[in-house]
Structures are given as structure tokens and as C-alpha cells.
Amino acid sequence: MSEIEIPLVGGRITAGVVRVGDTVRRPISADRWNVHDLLRELENIGFEGTPRFLGIDERNREILSFLPGDVPPDLDHFSDVQLRSAASLLRRFHDATAQSPLARQQNAEVICHNDWGPPNAVFYEDLPFGLIDFDTIAPGLRLWDLGYSAFAWLDLGNPEYTGAEQVRRLSVFAEGYGLSTCSPAQIAAYAVARQTALASSGRMNGKTDMEDWAASAAHWTIINVTEKLLPTGYFIDTDF
């Protein structure tokens, strides 16, 4: 008797992802050798917080270990404790990938998740403990990843927050990451860069809603956050 397949929901789940027993089956739409190699490396060094790659099934789907917990439906309002936890988990992921072959080949600081936000987090006992969805991993800078992560976790650009409150929350996020070279001001600058890059991507791909949302978020972040944190005359390169 074949095992029951349970469609997974929550976050922005890739179409066709299902749970089978204690595993997740995920359709493969592109070459995934880099993802599989990274997951194997993380398993070998004992990193907790990512699923284990278990192989390919008869329907050419990835077999991953299932991380028990809950995935938020989308961006939401998160507590200081949750923000610190999310940033701390990203720091541990970065530290674990810094010496990976893929990072070393590109002379990169770390492997960036590039989509570390609530929809790709597994929560357990109300705190993020697992990272999922590695479609966008690439060698890069810690701050490049932190900029997007702050944008996503703090919902930078959401006018429900005041600028002062987002500056405070950004300091909480930076504290959770815990690296002095990644200050709130630097993370804010890279958040604007990531917002601007997302707007450019939306424009190039004809996704006007994405373009308008990301451009509006970048404008809000510059006015309400970066101008409060960065020295007068500091230039943010938003040409992506």
C-alpha cells in the first residue's frame, strides 16, 4: 500500500510539495546539485535547522526530512524574541556555510539563502528554528542576505510601523545576528538595495505589482530608517 501524500500549506509553498510520512517530496524544476551538496555538507557538520536530503523518489521528486512545526502564512508582526531568533538562525547558517566548497570556489563570505523570511521559516514553540526552500541560494555577502532578511522579517515599508519603531526593531535584529561588522545602519542600507533590486526584477519581468510594492518599500525605508541611521552624505547604490 502506498503512503498517503498530504499537501503542505503555509508560507509560499512551491506547487506540488507534499508530506509523506516523515519526509517531504518536492518537485524538481531545475538542476539542484548545489542545493543537495549544501544540505549534505550541513548534515555532515551537524548543523541543525535545515532538512536532510534523502534522495530522489520514483517520480523525480526530492526526498527531504520533514521539520515538524508551523510555517507562517505570510509577513506578519513578530516579537523581539522572534526577530532575534530569526537573525540568530541566519547567523548560524552563514557560519556553517562559510567554508563550504561552493563559497570557497567563489571566494565568497558565505552561502546566502536569499529568501530568508517568515514564509520560509519553520516555527517550533513559537520561535523560528528551521530554514526551508533553497531555490535561491548563492555565494555572497552576509549583508546581502541580511538586507533581504530584515526587509522580510521586519516588513520594512509597512506604514503600520513608525520609522522610530523600525529603527528599534532593526537594532534588535542586528543584535540577534551578533556580528559587529553587520550594524543596523549597514543592514538598513542593504535592505534598500534588496528592495530596489526586487523592484527592478519586477519591472524586467512585467510584474508591476511587485515593482510598485518593492519600490514603495524602498522609498519608505530610505525616508524613515536609513536617513536616521546613516551619516549625512552617505550614498546608497540602488542601481541593480
Rank of each mutant, 00 (worst) to 15 (best):
Gly21Pro: 02
Gly21Thr: 00
Gly21Gln: 01
Asp22Trp: 12
Asp22His: 13
Thr23Ile: 05
Thr23Phe: 06
Thr23Cys: 06
Val24Cys: 05
Arg25Phe: 08
Arg26Pro: 02
Arg26Asn: 04
Arg26Tyr: 03
Arg26Leu: 02
Ile28Trp: 07
Ile28Val: 04
Ser29Cys: 14
Ser29Gly: 15
Ser29Thr: 15
Asp31Lys: 12
Asp31Ala: 11
Arg32Ile: 14
His36Ile: 07
Asp37Lys: 07
Leu38Ala: 01
Leu38Gly: 08
Leu38His: 08
Leu38Val: 10
Leu39Asp: 03
Glu41Trp: 14
Glu41Cys: 07
Leu42Lys: 03
Glu43Ser: 12
Glu43Gly: 13
Glu43Trp: 10
Ile45Ser: 08
Ile45Arg: 10
Gly46Tyr: 05
Phe47Ala: 11
Glu48Lys: 08
Glu48Tyr: 07
Gly49Thr: 06
Thr50His: 00
Pro51Gly: 00
Pro51Gln: 00
Phe53Tyr: 07
Phe53Arg: 00
Phe53Gln: 00
Leu54Trp: 04
Gly55Ala: 02
Ile56Cys: 05
Asp57Thr: 06
Arg59Pro: 03
Arg59Met: 10
Asn60Thr: 08
Asn60Leu: 05
Arg61Ile: 01
Glu62Gln: 01
Glu62Tyr: 03
Glu62Arg: 00
Ile63Tyr: 04
Leu64Pro: 00
Phe66Met: 03
Leu67Cys: 05
Pro68Ile: 11
Pro68His: 10
Asp70Arg: 15
Val71Ala: 08
Pro72Cys: 03
Asp74Glu: 12
Leu75His: 11
Leu75Asp: 07
Leu75Ile: 14
Leu75Ser: 10
Asp76Arg: 12
Asp76Ala: 03
Asp76Asn: 10
His77Thr: 15
His77Trp: 12
His77Arg: 13
His77Pro: 05
Ser79Gly: 15
Ser79Phe: 11
Ser79Pro: 11
Ser79Arg: 11
Asp80Arg: 05
Asp80His: 01
Val81His: 02
Val81Lys: 10
Val81Tyr: 06
Gln82Asn: 06
Gln82Arg: 13
Gln82Phe: 02
Leu83Phe: 03
Leu83Lys: 05
Leu83Trp: 06
Arg84Asp: 05
Ser85Pro: 12
Ser85Tyr: 09
Ser85Asp: 10
Ala86Thr: 10
Ala86Val: 07
Ser88Arg: 15
Arg91Gln: 15
